[in-house]
Design a binder for these strands. Sequence first.
DNA 1: TGTATTTGACAACAAGCGTCGTCAGAAGTA
DNA 2: TACTTCTGACGACGCTTGTTGTCAAATACA
Lengths: 223, 223
Amino acid sequence: MRKQNETKSGRTYGGLTQEQRKAARYKQFLEAGLEVFGTSGFRSATVRQLCRQAKLTDRYFYEAFGSLELLLIAVYKCQMDIIQERVITAITEVLPSQDIQHIADVGLTTFFTGLEDPRIAQVCMVELEGVSLDVSDLYHSYINNFADTFSSMAGLFYPSWKIADDEWKILGISLVGAMRQAATYWLLSNYAMDKKALVKATAKIFLGLIEHIDKEQATMLST
Amino acid sequence: MRKQNETKSGRTYGGLTQEQRKAARYKQFLEAGLEVFGTSGFRSATVRQLCRQAKLTDRYFYEAFGSLELLLIAVYKCQMDIIQERVITAITEVLPSQDIQHIADVGLTTFFTGLEDPRIAQVCMVELEGVSLDVSDLYHSYINNFADTFSSMAGLFYPSWKIADDEWKILGISLVGAMRQAATYWLLSNYAMDKKALVKATAKIFLGLIEHIDKEQATMLST
DNA sequence: TGTATTTGACAACAAGCGTCGTCAGAAGTA
DNA sequence: TACTTCTGACGACGCTTGTTGTCAAATACA
């Protein structure tokens, strides 16, 4: 008997190895997904439309993702990770200034800058709502993560504050919601208003909350 | 020639006039829509499923709404109008107290109370996102409306404040976003935390913002 | 150069859904 | 009671979509 499956698969093609080609196709689908989901929306997206946009055959779509939902998840993760990473590095850069106002400004500016591409804003702010349970879970795990970042940063700046974890959670989630709604409003207005105005307004919510809690903690301590 | 369409339509049936029956079916579909959209979600809803839930024939669905999208809009409007009306009346009742803290508490409590039914919360907080342009427009017109309510109430309480309309808009929208995200979090946690805790936390955001602006306006005035 | 692999275009198939028509029975009306 | 209208159950048609298979052209390798 000779070996079965003696096919020599995995050779190079177009000057690229199999892995390189796979990776390239993966990226093409990510790009196409951002374009399609970000303009036509996920609900009206079809496999055929997506493959046309990616300039790839259907078969490769199934090889790379298997379903539109998984592609949506991949696109979202990809974009959100970029934004999150940018925000965190931007904030850590100005962290030594100890200037809360400045830190809030920088963080929010970075956030809104990441959403200046309407397709990214559409996918990251609105398209993930109400797709499926899996997508919903992913979505809210990211929101939770963002919210927790706020709490831990506040704990760093105001170590004396005594606030229950539950309350931190609600506060962080609410702040994320404020940012999200502002960004969505910006997107729907076709970016009519200045980014600086957006940052200025949302920063007031952050700073107001901080000041409010600070005052509250002071009175709590004095009693 | 004798008259065409001489059919005597519109007679009573089951003890109800035609209008009463139509209204009853309309209501049945609204109820079924809330149930289906609020549990399975709009994306997976079908006409057949909906009619089964409403215990009515397909034909009446087309007579009453014509499309799932129009039904979704009707369900949303119906529920949001109820909530909005409750919030406004609750607030106007405690308005004479001039106690901002109390007013915020009452308003937020009424809001979250209106979302204690998970189906209502699902439809009003998450299902409308990313359905279609029409639905999106409606959705954000309601959000805008809510946001404007905040601005006008603040203008009533703090007539001396000088704040541009654009900024009010962003602030109001962001506050709505905060409430929305908190409510969604509540829903997804299966209403794990106490409503009072939710109100307490979100009220801090409102009060903090008010105090922040008040301080800012004072310093603006003194310069 | 000849052969095997990779690729892209496209057809085919089944499934799900919106939508409309039919038809028998229930309920009202003359 | 005889006739008309209303109602509900059900099937049929057409369209769209996901998914798989086919086949010829392009590319790499021995």
